[in-house]
Design a protein around this nucleic acid. Sequence first.
DNA 1: TTTTATTTTTAGACAAAACTAAAAATTTGT
DNA 2: ACAAATTTTTAGTTTTGTCTAAAAATAAAA
Lengths: 220, 220
Amino acid sequence: MTLSEENYLKSIYHLEKKYTRGVSTNALAEDMETKASSVTDMIKKLSEKELVNYKKYQGVKLSEKGNSIAVQIIRKHRLWEYFLVEKLDFNWDEVHEIAEQLEHIKSDELIAKLDKFLDYPKRDPHGDPIPDAQGNFANLEKKILAEFDEGEQGICVGVKDSSAAFLQYLDRNKIKLGKSISILEKEQFDGSMILKMNNKELTISKVAANNIYLKPIGVE
Amino acid sequence: MTLSEENYLKSIYHLEKKYTRGVSTNALAEDMETKASSVTDMIKKLSEKELVNYKKYQGVKLSEKGNSIAVQIIRKHRLWEYFLVEKLDFNWDEVHEIAEQLEHIKSDELIAKLDKFLDYPKRDPHGDPIPDAQGNFANLEKKILAEFDEGEQGICVGVKDSSAAFLQYLDRNKIKLGKSISILEKEQFDGSMILKMNNKELTISKVAANNIYLKPIGVE
DNA sequence: TTTTATTTTTAGACAAAACTAAAAATTTGT
DNA sequence: ACAAATTTTTAGTTTTGTCTAAAAATAAAA
């Protein structure tokens, strides 16, 4: 597995969620920031290795084998992200680039021990699930804050928008992973919400509420 | 800096300690497990980038710039080794290969935060000094256990031989980094030593004593 | 000091992964 | 259905880091 092959598998994995059918050469080229012709070349290579199923002009799909490799790379990526945020004190939006590098380190033992050290986390800092060593995702319920009703409660498990601007907004309002939040009021007019967190009241806009994930309390 | 360039710089750095003069093409080829002709090619490239000083048939030396890059790679390598042993619970002899990969991760912020997380360690698990962010090595005294005299004391800071066999020997005898050891007796006949560690007595052979580093107590 | 042996460098090729330009297949619009 | 537009593939280069084989320089030996 070269670095480039791994990145293609990962990209195909993510694009498959979006496009249902086979992933098109162009979509892949855009995601990989490369040219369609380069994609065709690589797809042929992956196809020979039986990591993807490919017929000319029909797009690609991951094979069983390709899928499980992709999942393992995602596992590594998300474990490292968790490490960077929880142990090294990075902010949520600073970790992606570094995790893109760390995910390619080759050592099963390393990942097993890292997982243990982190106490087997189930979600990364953005709220996405971390597959286990066998590639199984825990089925983790999570809902956009804006979809909660008055009186409900949840724990902050991630964000949708991970731009620096949004992150800074969260920091200013002391919204962090793991924080327990209850919905006091929902304003019909503009969709803004009054929350209770740390025993204080806090008002947030609908735009913000649409970018925060909570895990409904009592679940998991 | 490509991965390959970084590895060459590191190799040159280490070989310079051994050979005083410029590092020969063949020595480098052997260390890098490649052919002399490949080495010549790479040396030219590094020379154009002014990372090494090179004259045909005269071997190479690191330039100022090349040296400081090499030192930073070594810093990363040793910090990661420390992390693997101290936090992830790897054994001393299992970490080198993984650290060889991790040392190439590119992010100054990452290394700064890792250093802080580890509480600014001064030595890696083999007792080698970890340069600081400016590339300075603390001057750390360390002596081979076999050279200590009766009545002296020290703290275990590393090993010379890091083979699995030796490591297992150390484990069986509960000799670990950071352990305080006093020399009770030195046998003239065969150089074996009777030590006190954890309030227990322990006899070790000269061969073993020649492969353990202690920091004399009261220093640093 | 020549000859021999060793080391180092050049020259020419190759594989991986990318690119450009152009051809082929597919899809869309009328 | 057929021409136009788009997507995908092919063909031919390029770059990086390696290789082999052979030439050139240096070092060692007789």
